[in-house]
Amino acid sequence: MKAVRVHAYGEPARIESVPDPVVRGPLEVLVEINAAGVCRTDLHILEGQWADKSGVTLPYTIGHENAGTVREVGSAVSGVRPGDKVILHPLVTCGLCRPCRSGDDVHCENSSFPGIDTDGGMAELMLTNARSVVRLSEQLAPADVAALADAGLTAYHAVRKAVPSLYPGTHAVVIGAGGLGHIGLQALLALTPARTIVVDRSPEVLRLAGELGAHHTVHADGSQVDAVRDLTRGAGAQVVLDFVGEHGTESDGIAMTRDAGSYFVIGYGGRVDVPTIDIISREINVIGNLVGSYNDLDELMTLTAQGKVALRTRTYPLDAALDALADLDANRIPGGRAILVP
């Protein structure tokens, strides 16, 4: 099969032929990949940012946002069968450790992460297990939802955690309404009554955010912190969701957060540097977010089937994977996601 492979950090990926994966375990599921999302994390992988954390042996296949058709299942699999359309939770989990038994499978003690620390789905086939597959409603096509497997799941997970803080009359700020942020905005509108404020440096992204239903949009032209504080009567927002996490959004996000509010870090690449006396005196929360649980993904698919969440996508054939990565790196996919269609 064809696959997009990393051979060395700091170098472009390669599209090459590798052996097909084979079902061997009773709970394994072989999926024909119909759509694979292209994520900024893939760029960070190629740069080497994940080398120490993942410990993966090169070469390997990237791609952690995957959806497709079940090709073959192990002897103990009963929830799906060949021919089913599915989206894949990004983690392959054990189901037996304490986090899994608590429904916190994103912190499974025995997990693997296809596309990060083992072969992923920028390929024609991918091997996963029964705990990772979510059957799709008939009205959902793999190419329409693939990027929700990580970008959507991560955004939804953060919003889901923020829901108790967002009662009527509150404000939520979305910093960066691109590939992740436009999904987070839709989740906020679907799950909370909060007034939403979208901050972005792209007028086009702000226009799209307005079309999706954002209550206010703010151009990040250097005056964005003052603009948000004006919109919140000088107090800041109860929740700030930072989908960028670098290039100064870290300090902006803290400054936009109301006292006793919460700053959610979703994008990454920068550093959060807050004097401890400010954390104490303002009693603010800084909350990290790493993808989401199987249940989060299942809920997100329900919202998507109801038409409350939708992806803006640009499709590429698998052979054009390097073009898709280059377009993402150059910010030529505003407000949406690149999808490889093998």
Rank of each mutant, 00 (worst) to 15 (best):
L311C: 08
E211A: 12
G152Y: 11
G253N: 09
T170C: 06
M122E: 04
P99M: 06
V133Q: 01
R40A: 07
I277T: 13
L88F: 06
D42H: 07
V23T: 05
A151C: 05
Y294V: 15
D144M: 06
L30G: 04
S54D: 04
L231W: 12
V38A: 02
A3Q: 03
R5I: 14
K308D: 15
D242I: 03
E283K: 07
Y156E: 00
L189S: 00
G184P: 02
T302G: 09
L185W: 12
G103T: 06
V106T: 11
V134T: 11
Y9G: 04
P90Y: 13
V225C: 14
S17K: 07
Y263W: 08
P12Y: 12
A8E: 15
V291H: 02
V274S: 06
G83H: 04
R160D: 13
V73E: 02
L300M: 10
A227I: 08
R207T: 15
D329T: 14
G222H: 13
V23M: 05
H89P: 04
T276H: 03
V6Q: 01
V56A: 14
E16W: 13
S137G: 06
T313K: 02
L311N: 05
L58M: 09
V272Q: 12
V80Q: 02
D329S: 15
A305R: 13
A143T: 06
T93I: 15
H247I: 14
P114V: 08
M122R: 00
T41L: 02
G55H: 08
E11V: 13
I62W: 01
P99Y: 10
I15T: 15
D221I: 15
P317W: 02
D252R: 14
E124C: 00
I175M: 12
